[in-house]
Every structure is written in C-alpha cells, then in structure tokens.
Design a protein around this nucleic acid. Sequence first.
DNA 1: CTGTTATCAGGAATGGTTACTAATAATACA
DNA 2: TGTATTATTAGTAACCATTCCTGATAACAG
Lengths: 159, 159
Amino acid sequence: MEQKRQRMTHQRSVILEEVQRCQDHPTADEVYERVRKRLPRISMGTVYRNLDVLVSSGLIRKLGPDFPQMRFDGDTRDHYHMTCIGCGCVEDMGIPPQDDTVSQLETALGKLTKHGVFGHRLEFFGLCPDCREKKGYLLEEVQEIPSSEEEQEHGAEGE
Amino acid sequence: MEQKRQRMTHQRSVILEEVQRCQDHPTADEVYERVRKRLPRISMGTVYRNLDVLVSSGLIRKLGPDFPQMRFDGDTRDHYHMTCIGCGCVEDMGIPPQDDTVSQLETALGKLTKHGVFGHRLEFFGLCPDCREKKGYLLEEVQEIPSSEEEQEHGAEGE
DNA sequence: CTGTTATCAGGAATGGTTACTAATAATACA
DNA sequence: TGTATTATTAGTAACCATTCCTGATAACAG
C-alpha cells in the first residue's frame, strides 16, 4: 500500500486560502460560494474532495455537524466553539482551552472502563449576540439543545 | 400556548418501548428494524416522526450525529458516551457525570464572552472493546474523526 | 357511539454528500 | 526542455438519511 502523492492544484490552494481566510466556520456550501467567485467553473464535488484532503493533512479542521451541515475551520489551533441555537452559526469562544479539566476526565474514563478513550469533543450551545438581541428568544425551550431545530409547531406564541 | 393533544398510539408506544429497551444507542434505522418485527407495516416516516415527538416530550434523547446517522437514547439520565471510531457504535461510559468541572467552564465562558452560553455537549472518542481486540487498529486513522482535541500531533499524509 | 383530528402508511421529494467518467494538468524524469 | 504518468478535475448521476405530502385510519372527548 503506497500512498499516492498529493498535488497542490490551483483549486486546492484556493479552497485552502478561502477556508483559512474566513473568520466564521463555513459549510461546504459556503466554501463553494466563496471559491466560485475566483474559480467560476469549480464543481461542488471538487470542493468536498479537497476539504476532505485538507482535513486529513491537518491543514484545516472539520467541525461535527450539530446543525445538519458539516462545518470547517481554517484555524487548527485548539479553541472552543459555540453553536448558536438561534441561527446555527458557529463562533469561536475567546478563551484559551483549559484542557486539563476535561483531559483529566478523559484519563479517568480510560482507566475506569474497558474502552480505549483517546479523544473528546466539547462544544457549547447558546445564542450569538445577534440572536440574543433580535429576540429575547424563549429561554425555556433551550434545554432541548442536543442537536436539532425544534422549530416545530411546538410553542412560538405567548405562553 | 396550547399544544395539540398528543395521542398515545400503538406505534408510538412500541417505538418508545423499543428505544427504552435497548442498551445500545440505535439509529432511526435500527429502531425501524426492531419495531418492524412487532409492527410489520409501520413506515419509516412514522418512526422518524415519533422519535422526534418522543424527544421533544423528553421521553428519549437524541444523540448528535458523529457518524452520519442520528442516534437515540432511551436513557434520559445524564451520562457520558463514547463513540467508537472503529465501528461507529456509541456506548455508555460507566462513570457518573462530573458536570461541575465543565459547568464551571461553561459559566466562565458565559461571563467572559458576549455570548449567551447555556449548554454544552461533551463526547468521547475511542475504541470499543470489540474493535480494540479485533485489531490493534491503525491509530493513525484517528485523526479522521470529527475533531478531537488530543492526538493531533502528526502532520501530513493522511490515508 | 360519533365527530374531530392527530396520526398513520406509503411514497415522493429534499438536501447534503459521494461516486463515476472522460478530460485535464501537476509532477517526475528522460 | 519535452513527455509519460497519474492525481485531480468538471459535470453529472447516484446515494442515503431525513422530511414532506396524501388520503385513509384510529384515538380520544363528549
């Protein structure tokens, strides 16, 4: 099994640049839109393929899908994210990672169970400044977070 | 506001029973398979709809998709999960939640940033006993997973 | 019982992501 | 430099989890 040598194509480098450039955490779709301004003929498949390649070479990161779409991050340094349950955007939290607390927990888990634990993911949920302002938002409903939009006929009127 | 009165249909209660019964964390698909043994004519749409209903009434929980499919949990008590990067299964970690550490962090984030933070999700990644045994597994491949915090040392070639 | 209507089965539609293919272009090296 | 090799591309079709739509069914209130 020899690994195939990667080529740095124009498309690939443009995709990388665009992901690294943006402050937000774009979906593949958004990357496509940005890249398309520079390479109008690029195809969605190319974007997906290259995002994967870039992720596995460690040049960008992949953020798990809390809202249905996958998101990517050009900043590969460890940092916390918060997903806004209002609009689904993902923002960086401006405080350095205090991995020690969770890492201790991780280690504890590794010892206490028969599983091999060697990684974790910690994400926060809340409201971005925008959503927070726009509406007081029903803080009641918030508890449901786990990863889906409860925008149903649940209860949007006055209580 | 008034919510529409829910009916406890046969299908719904069977679905609930099956989710509560199983120790693992079934995907909608798996729930469908189980339920189908008792209700051969049930449809996938019904399963999805009812899982959603049960989630929003708090009778079961929804686990975010780390592997592409959504998973559900009949045990609504707080507890940790580990997703196996080998086979994608999700298992409970047998240690009680020590939320205080992370909650402190959550509070800190709420104060330090202009975001409203009121929830978090902490998941672990590793290998289930099965996968651990079957193969030493190529620990290299670990980096392919969503985005863990540890294990990110190695750089270039993926595959 | 009976009427209202939430829920159902079945199937079609959606939307994000992957897979396939012939054509193209990035590298190795002659 | 030119040429061969082959990773990568654009375009498009397929995929698959999930959601939506419809007329029919059945839960529950009265």
